[in-house]
Computed example of a mutant assay.
Amino acid sequence: MRVTAMPADTNAYGDIFGGWLMSLMDSAAGLVAARRAKGRAVTIAMEGMKFHAPVRVGDEVSVYAEIVKVGRTSMTIAVEAHARDRHRETTRKVTEAHFTFVAIDRDRRPRPVDA
């Protein structure tokens, strides 16, 4: 997932809101979870959120997500966000976390991931 950080996403100091980044990361993890579960999956936890560097307006933010564990009904997904100044080629890791998702059925009850 790749987006540009815009002025509307900043706090009073001009840095991008951490919540904006968390939302992107949750969305990326959700896409991976739904694909693996072949259906609806919901976020039940986020662990180990670490902010390494600020994101500035105009930075290109890339979010990478990969499954690191699959249980009977749940999945743990490692997510990293990297930022790149729009006029440079180098990137920097700005945040990382692990998200846990549970596959659910039509009645919103946990179901096997491999169902």
Rank of each mutant, 00 (worst) to 15 (best):
E89R: 13
A53R: 12
T91F: 07
E47I: 06
A83M: 06
D85E: 13
R40H: 12
A78L: 12
F101L: 02
V68Q: 13
A53N: 11
E47D: 15
A34R: 15
T73A: 14
A97W: 04
G58D: 09
L21I: 09
A33M: 08
F101G: 00
G14S: 08
A33F: 06
F101A: 06
I104P: 01
H87S: 12
N11A: 07
T100N: 05
A29N: 08
D107C: 09
D107E: 15
G14Y: 00
A53D: 14
S74M: 04
V113G: 04
M75K: 00
V42K: 10
G58K: 06
I67V: 15
E47T: 11
G18E: 07
D107R: 12
A65G: 05
N11L: 07
K69P: 08
A83Q: 01
V94Q: 00
V55Y: 02
T91P: 01
V70K: 10
E60D: 06
D105E: 09
G58H: 08
S27V: 11
P112D: 10
V113T: 06
I44Y: 11
V102T: 03
R109G: 04
H87I: 04
D107Q: 14
V57T: 14
K50I: 15
R111I: 08
R111F: 03
A33C: 09
I104E: 05
M75S: 03
R86V: 06
K38F: 06
V68E: 14
R40P: 07
H98L: 12
I77Y: 00
T43Q: 05
L24V: 00
T43W: 08
G18I: 08
R108I: 10
T73S: 15
G58R: 00
V57F: 11
S23D: 11
R40S: 12
P110T: 06
M22V: 10
I16R: 03
A45S: 15
A65C: 11
M22R: 01
V94E: 06
A97C: 15
G19I: 09
E60Y: 07
D105N: 14
A103I: 05
G30F: 04
L21R: 02
A45D: 10
M49C: 11
A97Y: 05
F51T: 07
R72G: 13
V102S: 08
Y13M: 13
V70I: 15
A34Y: 00
A97I: 07
M49F: 14
T91A: 09
F101M: 00
V61W: 01
H98D: 12
R36F: 00
A45P: 01
N11C: 04
K93R: 15
V55A: 03
N11I: 05
A78P: 02
V32W: 01
S62Q: 11
A34S: 14
T95S: 15
L31K: 05
R86P: 11
E66D: 13
R35W: 01
A81H: 02
R111C: 06
K69F: 14
I67D: 09
A34N: 13
H98Q: 12
A65L: 05
V70N: 01
H52C: 11
D105T: 04
G18T: 04
I16L: 04
A103Q: 07
T90V: 12
K93G: 01
I104Q: 08
D107G: 11
K69E: 15
H82N: 02
R35H: 10
E80Y: 07
F51K: 05
R109D: 02
A45M: 00
R56A: 15
D85L: 05
V55M: 00
K50E: 15
V57M: 08
R106I: 03
G48H: 12
